[in-house]
């Protein structure tokens, strides 16, 4: 019975992806993409990876969907003003067929063969993780791998997030802050919901962060939920990005700052880079994760709020030099 569930789920995933690619209307493609994110979360559940399902639901269906809808809204807002033809139909020319077909078929055959002739693995990492989980300071293997065994990857990955937001800030012309955003319409129902949903979101975010050390959860999923809460506030009309601007730089880099200082300060005791002192691994990891959650929340939110306004005058040379 569960194999039938998996087969149908896989086919649905494929169907949704086909829907995204073949849809002429851009908005339909984006909504199909949101459905794809949700189905992918279910696939991760079936692959026995609840952490990834949590991350995919929070980041994939939640944030990426909102970013895509915002982008399509930006496109359709300007297109409708410029010319009255239906904005979302894709009239752009297509590229010649030979490269896509070759790459598609070639990749498919190559990967099928790679799966078919896969040799038996000689090194088993899961056993190693199980043997060393005791000293890692956390019970949940994935958090142990992320923040202890391969913590250097996570450090670089936070740097990747930080670079993305630095570039977003660099591309935002200073003139844009001063231009007054139109006051969002006051919507009683939405404000009511935000007032009740926000505490629940923050609570769940902290719960997911706390749960990270002994069951699926952790800094990234918690951060994504915090970001979703901030995006919710921004959409409901509270100009969160204006308040956030003041403590933005510190908040963004806080997680990375804490992670780096901990990573370096342990070296003073003669231990190699990124080695947690024996007794304190658990507490240190949780402290780093808490700071990371805050930073990831702010970073993902500013990746949403640093976008250009929809009504940006299209076509004229943006006045980027603010002297």
């Amino acid at each position: 019975m569960n194999l039938a569930f998996d087969i149908v789920l896989g086919l649905a995933l494929l169907l949704t992806a086909l829907g995204v690619f073949s849809s002429k209307d851009l908005f339909r493609a984006v909504v199909m993409f949101i459905a794809f994110g949700l189905l992918l979360a279910l696939v991760w559940v079936r692959l026995d990876a609840p952490d990834l399902a949590l991350a995919e639901a929070a980041i994939g269906a939640g944030l990426t969907g909102v970013l895509m809808i915002d982008a399509v809204a930006h496109l359709s807002a300007n297109t409708l003003q410029n010319d009255q033809r239906d904005d979302q139909y894709d009239h752009s020319p297509k590229r010649p067929l030979w490269l896509p077909v070759i790459s598609c078929v070639g990749l498919f055959v190559l990967l099928l063969g790679a799966i078919r002739f896969r040799p038996e693995a000689s090194v088993s990492l899961p056993d190693m993780v199980r043997d060393n989980i005791a000293e890692s300071g956390v019970e949940h293997p994935i958090t142990a791998v992320l923040l202890n065994f391969r913590s250097y990857d996570t450090l670089l990955e936070i740097a990747v997030l930080l670079v993305a937001v630095v570039v977003a800030m660099a591309l935002k012309p200073a003139a844009e802050d001063r231009v007054h955003q139109p006051p969002p319409a006051h919507d009683p129902i939405l404000h009511g919901l935000t007032a009740r949903l926000l505490p629940a979101m923050l609570l769940v975010g902290m719960y997911v962060l706390w749960a990270g050390s002994y069951m699926p959860g952790g800094a990234f999923q918690g951060g994504a939920i915090l970001a979703a809460a901030l995006v919710f506030l921004q959409l409901a009309g509270f100009a969160v990005d204006r308040y956030a601007a003041s403590l933005l730089r510190l908040g963004l880099a806080l997680g990375f700052l804490v992670f780096l200082t901990v990573a370096v300060s342990v070296m003073i005791g003669g231990r190699p880079f990124l080695t947690y002192p024996e007794g304190f691994a658990g507490q240190l990891i949780f402290f780093i994760e808490a700071m990371l959650t805050l930073s990831i929340g702010l970073i993902l939110f500013s990746l949403f709020s640093q976008n250009p306004p929809h009504s940006g005058a299209v076509g004229h040379q943006g006045a980027n030099h603010d002297q």
Binding site: I189, L190, G192, L193, R196, L197, A200
Partner: peptide, 8 residues
Amino acid sequence: LVLAASAT
């Protein structure tokens, strides 16, 4: 939560 969210 689902109730509140879907109503709004």
